[in-house]
Design a protein around this nucleic acid. Structure first.
Lengths: 216, 216
DNA sequence: GTCTATATCCAGATAGAC
DNA sequence: GTCTATCTGGATATAGAC
């Protein structure tokens, strides 16, 4: 998006990025008070201590601001999910990742709406801003694989489970933990159904031609 | 909301309700083309063949129109879910209800958003408009009870499952069936985890007070 | 009840001086 | 880059004639 080849004037570019960041911060503050779709450039500019036209010196349009917000949120999401898990057991890691996901979504409603619901009228994130989300999904895939689950359908079931958990929590018990406290149960339910049967220790047992057995 | 005691002028009230219905129909047509939050009274009036001020002869405000839409959608939802199930097996009924729910949600996006997401800025449905949804939830509770499931936590798991299914289907594969086709698996997974162990057949075992027939 | 006309407000975006 | 001033357009809602 921004030129990096202009070696001599790097500091200028840095200042510009800093100003952009300040505007995006003001935008987040605005949507947290007024709602995601209610973002107005006037309000945003007032919060940032500048005037409306100045915003256009840094962003081409309102949707361009949404895109910057989306990119930042996606980066946060990726980092939040990819941070080291201290648990060693793959199942505990999976459970912890579910907790992290729910915590991430419920802790910042406009961020959740921007990232996961498509509630802003004419806005579509650019591929660039979307990239971190793709990385995060790859992490999910890996954590499932670590539990012996590689079937694409099981991945879809898993994402549906988490999406539903978050959606219900936010819609029907905002600020509470009515669905959050179901995480352990839901992981158990999911693994009981999707995880290939454990091999009995010390017994090779050679279950043949389980097509599902392609898992590492 | 509307008076029914005025016996002599019932036809007048009927005409009024008919005119209201026409406006609400035009509103649905509008939101299906422009999006739920983008509903404008100008557009709505033009579609209904009237002018903007005339709308205010039938509705007190824009949110009043949303409320009428919500009430109608909730009525449709309740009727859709409560219609007779030809399957006799409680499990098949439960599965069919899940299909109906997903079909209802995915077949009309603005209706889904209005009913289940709270995406319209200042709008909250009135208790009156909300009532049919409560009835529908009672039906869900009954169908789960018919499968031996009465635990409140299991009900929450069930609603989360369906909500997630619908959400993922709409967000990530609109118009497709990537998550829809997981319904059978999800019911199996859910029942395997939440349903109490089956009693052996041919043993009367006297399960008392089956109340399945309560649905109209 | 329905219209024309209008009030009031706010939106996103731009022109041009400095 | 930042401002003042303004353009253009659309929103909800109301006044008042008929």
């Amino acid at each position: 998006m921004y030129k990096t080849g202009d070696a001599g004037a790097g500091w200028r570019e840095a200042r510009r990025q800093s100003a952009r960041a300040a505007i995006v911060d003001a935008a987040w503050a605005a949507v947290r008070e007024e709602g995601l779709a209610a973002l107005s450039l006037r309000n945003l500019a007032r919060r940032a201590g500048i005037t409306t036209p100045t915003v256009y010196a840094y962003f081409a349009s309102k949707n361009d601001i949404y895109d910057a917000m989306f990119g930042q949120a996606a980066e946060e999401f990726s980092a939040h999910m990819a941070a080291p898990y201290d648990a060693g057991d793959p199942r505990e890691v999976l459970t912890a990742s579910a907790r992290r996901f729910v915590e991430f979504c419920t802790s910042d409603l406009p961020r959740y709406q921007l990232l996961f619901q498509r509630t802003v009228p004419g806005f579509e994130p650019s591929a660039e801003s979307f990239a971190p989300s793709v990385r995060a999904l790859a992490g999910t895939r890996q954590r499932l694989a670590d539990n012996g689950i590689t079937d694409a359908r099981c991945l879809d079931v898993w994402t549906a489970l988490l999406a539903g958990l978050v959606g219900q929590q936010i819609s029907n018990d905002p600020g509470g933990d009515r669905w959050v406290m179901l995480i352990d149960d839901i992981v158990s339910m999911f693994l009981a159904y999707c995880q290939p049967p454990r091999r009995a220790p010390r017994r090779p047992s050679r279950t043949p031609s389980r097509k599902q057995g392609a898992q590492p």
